[in-house]
Amino acid sequence: MLTGKQRRFLRAMGTGLDPILQVGKGGITEALLKQVDEALEARELIKIRILPNSGREPKEVGKNLAVQTGAELVQVIGRNLLLYRRSQKKPTIELP
């Protein structure tokens, strides 16, 4: 569980990131979960865009992705999510 200070730190880091994955009308699939898992392991902090044709609320999708990948939902702004999970192999982000 992240503290408020850690969330604020990660939100500041996430402002410069571009979304690397998109959730469309297919929703959360096994392929998407695998991509999110691999991206989190490689980068630790990722931004995901929820397309309008997905038919789901971004907060709902974010919570589902966080639970299924073992990540923390840092922030939801509009249709963008910010997810964080510490890398098992080579962690790079040092939380305060």
Rank of each mutant, 00 (worst) to 15 (best):
K34T: 03
L81I: 08
K63H: 09
L83H: 03
A71S: 07
T3C: 07
L10F: 05
I77M: 02
T69C: 11
L40F: 15
T69R: 07
R85E: 00
G24A: 04
Q88K: 15
Q68E: 04
G62K: 07
D37Y: 09
K59I: 07
E38Q: 15
V76Q: 09
E44R: 15
E60G: 15
L17A: 09
L82H: 06
F9T: 01
G24N: 04
M1W: 06
Q68Y: 01
R56V: 06
V74D: 05
K90E: 06
L2M: 08
A66D: 06
K59A: 10
K25D: 02
K25R: 12
A71I: 01
Y84P: 07
A12V: 02
G78I: 13
Q68F: 01
P91S: 15
K90S: 11
K47T: 05
P52K: 12
E38N: 14
G27E: 02
G14P: 01
R56I: 02
K5I: 12
D37F: 11
S54H: 03
I93K: 05
L51S: 01
R85L: 05
G26H: 11
R79L: 08
Q35R: 14
R79P: 06
L33Q: 03
A39Y: 10
T92E: 10
D37R: 13
L83G: 02
R79H: 10
